[in-house]
């Protein structure tokens, strides 16, 4: 019931031992380099030379490739087809359908955008698989992020599964009093209100109770809080972070210089 929504996989690897901030900087710089780099093959290269080896270093290959099949491939594939069909660029027509044509140029463009999306999602997935959300939040709080932000993020991750469980209870309760939830389209639309409104109003009414509870535990107190866990931040972490920042700056400069 109080399960947290998280993709974290507990393994013992070099990637898991990195400081959480280093990992977030790594993910962001992969994304930024793939957006800003002026060369066509950068995103493809990043995927094969950086992300795939990191997946194996982080020992999360199974989980990564499952999520790649389930989440990344459909998203990227859809973008690829939309782009290939709808981009009106290029002369060399390969295939024509109604007012839409696929040209060589639009195929190349679609391939680039789809890979870029794959790189963005992969970098983010890799970060989520190897970082525990609470570890990230306590590290960021230690560095000066207001603790309220950490509360909002961790609490959302907790509330989502709770709400799903509550929705299941409401559906069961409404069905037991004869609400039609699975026949024709219009009947299903009609059943949205009795299903959604108890969920929404119920969770909003709980807000006050929650506020009183956390205020009683010193939520608004200004004193520095002590942490139960120590999070390592070695000098190699700092070295990696600055190296990545410099790489991003180089790619932005190159983009501005070459275009």
């Amino acid at each position: 019931m109080h399960e947290r929504l998280s993709f974290f996989v507990k393994r013992d690897s070099a990637l898991h031992h990195l400081n959480p901030l280093t990992k977030i900087v790594l993910a962001l710089s992969i994304i930024l380099v793939s957006i800003f780099s002026p060369w066509y093959w950068t995103s493809h290269g990043l995927l094969l030379v950086v992300i795939v080896p990191l997946v194996f270093i982080g020992k999360v290959a199974n989980e990564y490739f499952t999520s790649a099949l389930r989440l990344i491939l459909p998203a990227a594939g859809f973008i690829f087809f939309m782009q290939a069909f709808f981009q009106p660029i290029g002369q060399t027509v390969i295939f024509n359908f109604w007012f839409l044509d696929i040209t060589q140029e639009s195929l190349l463009f679609a391939f680039r955008i789809a890979t870029r999306i794959t790189v963005m999602i992969s970098a983010f997935t890799l970060f989520l698989l190897t970082t525990h959300p609470s570890e990230l939040m306590s590290d960021l709080t230690r560095r000066g992020l207001p603790p309220q932000f950490a509360y909002v993020i961790i609490s959302t991750l907790q509330i989502l599964p709770q709400m799903q469980a509550k929705a299941q209870t409401i559906i069961a309760a409404q069905r037991s009093r004869g609400l039609d939830t699975e026949s024709t389209f219009f009947k299903r639309i009609g059943s949205v209100v009795p299903l959604v409104s108890p969920l929404v109003f119920g969770s909003l009414v709980e807000v006050e109770e929650r506020a009183i509870a956390i205020e009683a535990r010193g939520f608004t107190s200004k004193k520095a809080k002590t942490s139960l866990y120590e999070i390592s931040d070695r000098s190699s972490d700092k070295f990696i972070r600055w190296g990545l920042v410099i790489l991003v700056i180089i790619s932005i400069v190159l983009k501005l210089w070459l275009s």
């Binding site: 509360y151 959302t156 709400m163 956390i214």
Partner: peptide
Amino acid sequence: WVLIPVAIAI
């Protein structure tokens, strides 16, 4: 602060 997570969930 407590309303924000609930709103995101909504």
